[in-house]
Design a protein around this nucleic acid. Structure first.
Lengths: 137, 137
DNA sequence: CCACTTGCTTGCATAATGCAAGTGACAGGC
DNA sequence: GCCTGTCACTTGCATTATGCAAGCAAGTGG
């Protein structure tokens, strides 16, 4: 029973991590989810303006990788609230490392919100969001 | 005093870090340089088998970003030994975060060589220098 | 009913990536 | 000196990913 070769490139933990989140958008989605966002619209409304087709594809990919789960919060037109699994929340440490490196070595960069910036993975909580508030933006 | 330099996407430290090393290969090159590799051939000989054109382009990009420097170690056909700047060495923390996440959440992954200090993960120190006799077809 | 919003899909144009082959400089064999 | 081989890259495309702009279904409010 020779084990198959499930690794695309090598058994290196870094290489396999990069095969999952090694692109320009995935970690930004994780960042936003850590900050308490959950719906497609909230994620699409980030300052980086992720293209909607890429957002949809990344959500599928991240869900297939076990990093997020989509829970329907509404039936008739089925809508999903995306939340991080423990595996996804653990990426907060990677985000934190990027934040520290970026802040130190890329002048002008800041931390958006106060998610993984404090020195530990802050729990977003605050699920008080309603489906769609009538309040304008 | 005018517009210094607008960020590609936002001022977020994570987004700007990803604009520099947010691909599948850059951090693997940094990993290998941290492990003591320095020449083009050593970097190309990694188990992930980075395509040579991508390696050449990443080296240029990383040098332009101030993450590595190429020092000529030979004149006649000028050859460069690539080493990490402090900015590049600081990416070791990001690598370490990826290693910890990958080892915990991607079954079967291991640490290649003695990774960025701090993990305390002993590993097969297979310092394979001169593996060019590899008759891998 | 109609305008408008949300949450995605679809169509292409434009990069980025990956494989293979090619190039220049040198080293060694004959 | 010529041929072969190696190292360090380049160059040519084929494949894939990314990005912009629409489009489209379901639902809400007027």
């Amino acid at each position: 029973m020779s084990i198959a070769k499930p690794f695309a490139r090598s058994a290196c933990a870094v290489a396999n991590s990069l095969d999952i989140v090694g692109d320009k958008w995935s970690l930004l989605v994780v960042r936003d989810l850590l900050h308490g966002k959950s719906t497609y619209g909230e994620l699409a409304d980030s300052p980086e303006r992720i293209p909607t087709n890429i957002l949809a594809e990344r959500l599928k990919r991240l869900e297939a990788a076990g990093i997020i789960v989509g829970t329907p919060y509404q039936e008739r037109p089925v809508r999903y609230a995306y939340t991080l699994t423990p595996k996804g929340k653990a990426l907060g440490d990677v985000l934190l490392a990027f934040v520290r490196w970026g802040k130190r070595h890329i002048p002008g960069t800041v931390v958006m919100g106060r998610g993984p910036a404090g020195g530990g993975t802050a729990a977003p909580a605050a699920t008080t969001r309603r489906t769609r508030t009538t309040r304008a933006k």
